[in-house]
Design a binder for these strands. Structure first.
Lengths: 217, 217
DNA sequence: CCCCGCATCCCGCAATCACGGGACGGGCGA
DNA sequence: TCGCCCGTCCCGTGATTGCGGGATGCGGGG
């Protein structure tokens, strides 16, 4: 809980000296927030985390750091301070970096061009269970999601064929599929051949790969 | 572009009469925004879209609608009005609905408990290329992402075995794998057997499925 | 120094596979 | 009513596979 008596501890990892100091000032000036420590690289922060008796609740993290990248630092920081929330604060807005940061466990993603007031707002948001993101970043994240779930592609598989394909994905052989579906092996064979034709493959592995990649079955 | 002369058109689809009217009032009162149309269900909105000569730039969409669900409506609305941005405005905050809405192409996701001022802010955000999300929604989205990239699981596969597995995933048969890797078919065979053992499967399909599901190779 | 584990390579066989064919009934649109 | 598609069933052949062996080279530990 954020109170005046016990301000939330925010650490900053940022290699640009003046920007780092500016952030510290802003955070310290914000009611209920304090920035008791700041570092110019991940290694120093990790070392401090290992010995600190007062771990931070939130870390503002740059990505373009000398030495260990902020991206690589995220999992280690989280491991060193379980429960800590990481807000990435960077100039990068390419999908790859956003994606990697989020997958690594970042809770927020801001751009350095943001007004400083947005930073304290973001910290409070994170503390309140939110995930602050710059608008463009949010749009990108959503787009990645959309792309992740592409058209369920329809190859015109029949119900039966989908059932057979499902069991193929589970690694069953024809004989097993036949008894599972209570069919003759020959019938299963025909279905499999039709699946191959519809999926434009000619091996089990190809069919299974296509089924999984395109979320059929 | 949002100007006083040409306000951005916002449509509202919401079955609760008073809430719908409240939104219309708020949007109409906001400078640069106008809500020239509102509907109680998707079907009506779709019909209006089909004949309208002034399609909206943004649609505020409820999910719990009578008839066609807002979730199912998203792709149709987008199809009927290419370029329209959908902001989901609902009481639901379960992962499934969020996920489906985003995958269907929603640009923003707000909760009805939000102060109305947040709605106009969200509309402007969307118009400016952003993707407004309630803080908790954003957190959920990020968590979904994190879960999407689970531990790359290690079954102790050797370099060679990974190479073979990769080609298996591509649907090649042993002979093809052998020539691709410049090995004897017998060697490939042994590799495959070792892969089976390490992956605890005993069929090609099982191995391919496991490789794909756990992002090996 | 020798043994063990490991990755790599090889052989042979029975089981399984892909695929060419053919057949039958039921549903559905022309 | 007549096709046509679909799901079901069947045969046979030759290729491919899974698996039982066995062998090589190479590194580390006793």
């Amino acid at each position: 809980m954020v109170t005046a008596a016990q301000p939330a501890r925010v650490w900053t990892i940022e290699d640009n000296d003046s920007y780092r100091r500016a952030i510290m000032r802003v955070v310290d000036a914000a009611p209920g927030l304090a920035c008791p420590a700041a570092f110019a690289n991940c290694e120093d922060a990790l070392a401090a985390l290992a010995t600190s008796r007062e771990p931070p609740g939130v870390i503002l993290l740059d990505i373009g750091l000398p030495g260990m990248s902020g991206l690589d630092g995220i999992p280690r920081l989280v491991a060193a301070a379980p429960g800590v929330r990481i807000i990435v604060l960077t100039v990068f807005e390419d999908e790859d970096k956003i994606f990697r940061a989020i997958c690594a466990g970042a809770t927020g993603y801001l751009l350095k061009m943001s007004p400083v007031g947005e930073i304290t707002a973001a910290i409070r948001d994170v503390l309140a269970g939110g995930s602050p993101m710059n608008g463009r970043i949010a749009r990108r994240v959503l787009e990645m999601f959309t792309r992740l779930a592409p058209p369920p592609a329809d190859y015109g598989l029949t119900e039966r064929e989908r059932g057979v394909l499902d069991l193929m994905v589970q690694g069953l052989i024809k004989k097993e599929i036949a008894s599972e579906l209570d069919l003759s092996v020959h019938t299963v064979d025909t279905h499999i051949r039709n699946i191959y034709e519809k999926l434009h493959v000619h091996t089990r592995s190809g069919a299974v790969a296509k089924a999984l990649k395109e979320k059929l079955v």
